[in-house]
Computed example of a mutant assay.
Amino acid sequence: MRSPLLGGIHHLAIIASDYQVSRRFYHEVLGLPIINETLREARQSWKLDLALPDGSQIELFSFPSPPARPNRPEACGLRHLAFRVPALAPVLAHLESHGIAVEPVRVDELTGCRFTFFADPDGLPLELVEQP
């Protein structure tokens, strides 16, 4: 069922503690194409717009001395960001080839989908959901 008000997710914004490390992770390791990159001098902040295949975007920001994220596992607020993949195995092999630790694959008891978690450079939980 579709919402009569909302058309989908336009973007998700992430604040990085080390902009260059996170830029490399999202662009080079995860392979998200860069739409635009802007230095916002008044804020001493970079803004990087990255494209996802469905048309949505990730906005990656840098800010001087951002506060730490609340601890896992179940802090109030955004819980995790999930990416849909056609097959887990090649993505897991790619992540592991870049030294990224990935949790064991599990099966969601409600959907029957296989999934797993890994983290971005700041520990933001990222999920892969297999939907062939």
Rank of each mutant, 00 (worst) to 15 (best):
E96G: 10
L52N: 05
P121S: 06
E96N: 14
P64D: 02
A93Y: 05
L6P: 02
S3F: 03
R2A: 13
G112D: 14
Q57T: 11
P132Q: 01
S45W: 04
D18K: 12
A87H: 15
H27D: 04
H27G: 07
L78G: 06
V21N: 09
P67F: 08
R69E: 00
F61N: 03
R23M: 04
E37M: 10
I58W: 02
G55L: 05
L30A: 08
T38D: 06
Y26C: 04
G55C: 12
P73V: 09
E41W: 05
L95Q: 06
E74V: 09
Y19M: 04
D49W: 12
E28N: 13
L110S: 12
E74G: 03
A16E: 00
L60A: 01
A87K: 15
L88C: 14
N36C: 08
M1L: 13
I35H: 13
A119K: 15
L88G: 11
G7Y: 00
G99Q: 11
S17T: 04
Q20I: 01
A89F: 10
A101G: 06
A93E: 15
R24I: 07
D120N: 08
I15C: 14
D120G: 09
D108R: 07
D18R: 13
W46V: 00
S22Q: 08
P121Q: 02
R43G: 01
Q44C: 03
G55M: 06
